[in-house]
Write a protein that binds this DNA or RNA. Sequence first.
DNA 1: AGTAATCTTGACAAATTTGTAAAGATTCTC
DNA 2: GAGAATCTTTACAAATTTGTCAAGATTACT
Lengths: 162, 162
Amino acid sequence: MKFSTIEEYGLRCLIQIAKNENENGLTIPELSELEGLSEANVAKILRILRIGGLVEAERGQNGGYRLTKPPEKITLREILYTLGGKLFESEFCNTYTGISTICTNSTDCSVRSVWKNVQRVIDEILSRLTLKDLLAPEKVVDKVVCERVENFVSINDLKIIQ
Amino acid sequence: MKFSTIEEYGLRCLIQIAKNENENGLTIPELSELEGLSEANVAKILRILRIGGLVEAERGQNGGYRLTKPPEKITLREILYTLGGKLFESEFCNTYTGISTICTNSTDCSVRSVWKNVQRVIDEILSRLTLKDLLAPEKVVDKVVCERVENFVSINDLKIIQ
DNA sequence: AGTAATCTTGACAAATTTGTAAAGATTCTC
DNA sequence: GAGAATCTTTACAAATTTGTCAAGATTACT
């Protein structure tokens, strides 16, 4: 269970765009510079975000990328779903070799239940965090994210390692 | 953010091994048959589980794979960590292009905070589920997993879709 | 000892994901 | 309208993950 690079880079680019003051938005070369990615790669990632409706592009000399909505209205769930799809797709069982027969016949697919429930919790956490929450300096963000998560989950005795 | 096929198949194989009654354990051809995977693929996955210390193998005519501990002592966290690694590795930031300079200089790496907190919650959920919890028929498992998760997380108004 | 059933390993092939390159389309400025 | 700056798209290359194959090692049974 990993985050893909598209998710990582896409979210980073979105944060940069949201932080940007200039009304023209951010250009591909600027994002490339800010995040240390190649321009071609930024272009590809921004395309996904644009098709997903999270950013809009203006071409030409004063062109660039802007958010389509204010950052407080964009949830992390929406972002990560656009960039990487859901953790557990309902076709999942069918795409895996041989499992369809096993699942439908014996209906003994306990694994699915785990995936579903993990996804449910992740979805809920990500729904409660917006792009705006990520715009502060790292330490502030960390505090907010921790609080938000703890407010929702009853982890009392657990510390974050590292 | 996806589960890898190794995680899916590995967990399935473990469940089969745990369910198995025969004291000799399950052989590769049997697991292959049960889960609809090729024998070569099963062999590869079982190797990971064996190196990870979750199963032990016996060679020869009465050979097969058995669990190294009782299923109630094997957590899903342990299993998925063995099969797929952590969601967020601490070297993560360094492995991504260009980010090291940005991270260390501006310490403005809000994304990391999200990953860390999501992982914290997933880890906690997976720690509370053991292999034994997955051995019942699907509907029973579903009930148990739901309850266990809900007991820990305050989702009140959310229903599982599908 | 020989044979069959099994696990074990390393090399390779296929598929998927990730990243790059090049040519095109649009807009602004002059 | 020419040119520069920008986004857009498609095709391709590289890297990673996934899956297969074949040869070897171990054990039990006769």
